[in-house]
């Protein structure tokens, strides 16, 4: 089986999410990586270094610069003529493109797989991870999104794949990119951080969230996350959200501050290696999954913790 992996990148550098997809794909067969973008020679060169990648296919066209699914999907479909499976990590980019590819190929997509059980058999979470389904595809080709935290990162170096050029139909004329407001942060990225400090509704407002959570995160060198309630209330922007429909994370240590632990939040973080919860309500559901729970008022406990670290 030959598997086409979607390369996640920002136009300049490859993103780590690509490495998770390569690991998932390698369990199915030979791995080719598709780098679609504009002026992406450096990204292609990086992709060629990933251990286990046989071939890198580069589609360099202004139409592919912003990852618009309307332009990208026909390209992927064309390249899929010579491949048996398409694998993307379940990022917002992967989730946007893969189903469009699946429909054009007339294939049922397997979303957010957690493991490869056989050539066409996979496990995937349903009901916010409260159940795990083992599913087998009957389609000739596979279209898969893989949950990043379920697959280790492939080695970023050590490979020496050949680089080939491919081309697609280019501009569809259906959509155009207007702009982006991307969060700039010196802190580690949520989905790849070793430590995460997350805040919930109990943080009251944006200023309190910043004054309480950020110093602790900085002391620990941690990424900052938030519950849906905190994002909805405007304490932080959407890219901080951890949960069923936000980001799925699995750091070494997850510190939940003032988060009650709704199942939708737990779905996004319960695979963390160690969970620490600070909450003044000793009956909060978060304590049912926490390895270490501190029942305390966060407004005294967190500053004390930050001060003593």
């Amino acid at each position: 089986m030959t598997v086409l992996v979607w390369a996640e990148h920002n136009g300049v550098a490859l993103k780590d999410a690509t490495l998770n997809a390569v690991t998932a794909a390698a369990q199915l067969g030979a791995v080719h990586v598709l780098v679609a973008g504009f002026g992406v020679d450096s990204v292609a060169a990086q992709a060629a270094q990933i251990a286990g990648v046989e071939k890198v296919l580069v589609a360099d066209d202004a139409a592919y610069a912003h990852g618009l699914a309307e332009n990208i999907a026909p390209l992927v479909v064309a390249v899929m003529a010579d491949h048996d499976a398409f694998v993307a990590t379940a990022t917002t980019t992967g989730k946007n493109i893969a189903p469009r590819v699946a429909a054009l190929l007339d294939v049922a997509q397997l979303s957010e797989i957690l493991s490869v059980e056989g050539p066409k058999t996979f496990t995937r979470p349903i009901y916010a991870g409260n159940a795990i389904a083992t599913v087998e595809s009957s389609d000739a080709k596979l279209v898969i999104t893989a949950r990043g935290t379920a697959f280790a990162k492939a080695e970023a170096t050590g490979g020496s794949a050949v680089i080939e050029t491919v081309s697609g139909a280019g501009e569809s004329g259906l959509s155009s990119f207007i702009g982006a407001e991307l969060a700039k942060s010196e802190r580690p990225e949520l989905t790849s951080a070793k430590i995460i400090v997350s805040g919930g509704r109990a943080l009251k407002d944006a200023d309190t969230f910043a004054a309480t959570i950020l110093p602790l995160a900085d002391k620990l060198g941690a990424a900052v996350g938030a519950s849906r309630a905190a994002v909805d209330a405007g304490y932080v922007s959407n890219d901080y959200q951890v949960g069923q429909t936000g980001k799925i994370v699995a750091p070494e240590v997850y510190v939940a501050v003032g988060i009650s632990g709704a199942i939708q939040h737990l779905a996004g973080m319960k695979d963390s290696k160690t969970i620490i919860a600070i909450n003044k309500d000793e009956d909060a559901p978060i304590f049912q999954v926490a390895d270490f729970g501190l029942v305390a008022d966060l407004y005294t406990a967190v500053p004390e913790l930050t001060g003593k670290l």
Partner: peptide
Amino acid sequence: RLKVLQVKEPAQRSAGIKI
């Protein structure tokens, strides 16, 4: 197109200790 072979509970995390 997809055959569900099995649906099971996820591995449960047990509550840890209070510090």
